[in-house]
Design a protein around this nucleic acid. Sequence first.
DNA 1: TTCCGGGTGT
DNA 2: ACACCCGGAA
Length: 364
Amino acid sequence: MKRLTEFGQLEDPSFSAAVIDWQKSHGRHALPWQNTRDAYRIWLSEIMLQQTQVAAVLSYYARFLERFPTLHDLAAAPSEDVMAQWSGLGYYTRARNLHACAKRVVEEYGGVFPSEPALLADLPGIGRSTAAAISAFSSGTRAAILDGNVKRVFARVFGIDEFPGVKAVEEGLWRRADALLPAEGIEAYTQGLMDLGATLCTRSKPDCARCPLQDRCVAYATGRTAELPVRKPKKTIPEKQAALLVVIEGGQVLLEQRAQSGIWGGLMSLPELDGHAVRGALAIDAVAPLAGAFGEVEAISALLPLVHVFTHYRLHIAPFQVSLSRRADLPAPYLWWDLARIDSAPLPAPVKKLLLDLSAPSLF
DNA sequence: TTCCGGGTGT
DNA sequence: ACACCCGGAA
């Protein structure tokens, strides 16, 4: 039964009981870093298991311990040896931090890992979750882990339908993780959460039929296991602005040959002024100096702005029509192009459309 | 090809 | 708050 407390409604001893029971009967018990309180071996496994699955870690773990049987061996080893042992596991900052951490534990703690999670988390390569795991397994400290597996389990069980990477959501997850800790049996509970996420509550095709939390799982009850946890939102596309000048004189339009690299590389386009999309007098002032370089300006008027979407950003285009009373002599990359054959110009689609729209409806 | 991830650097 | 690492999975 849930217990309402003055601290919130998060405590629920039956949650940890279900995890612990399941871990004892169906969890993993024979991994090389289990059934020991040796902080060195536990720490090493936790670092290797960051971003890396058990199957990939097994052989590295064995070889690493063969080469560096104790923390002192590791701390005293040349860094090339450490890196060589790590080679192939990926995420090599883990190896550099591992070595630095070994040296610091020897220096600052006489070669004995501290048991306090806060002290562990101060060491290189050890964050809050890894500190809690090391502390729980090596000294039975009651501390909450919250790695990717646990986030996934919580997001599904509690039906959290916001991206867990958002700070406030993650804080809420940590509060739940703390509140759900068992009074007894932190080792089996911590291992159980890890095992659950790794073996049943997997990212795709979770095995809900075997899950000890099925009867309390919001995602299961609502058929949303495939949608939870909410995926990381695609980062918002940057917005860029550019002013384009439509300089028309004598039935010709002024074009500019673009550089080979960058957007619209090698195509022709209209003379462009980056970072100017605002309409109105201010924008016309900003555009006037460029227009002036093309001849004696008679008038400048803003045309309807348009938006062009690229894969990596959104371009807000503010076109301005410029009429000249006299053309300046223009060197490359500028050239005049007959409006009558604008259809055959190598122009980007939105620019061509702009020019066609401009010349087509002109009913003379 | 895209998604994912714990800790760190910015 | 975000990019990055770099390898596996989908």
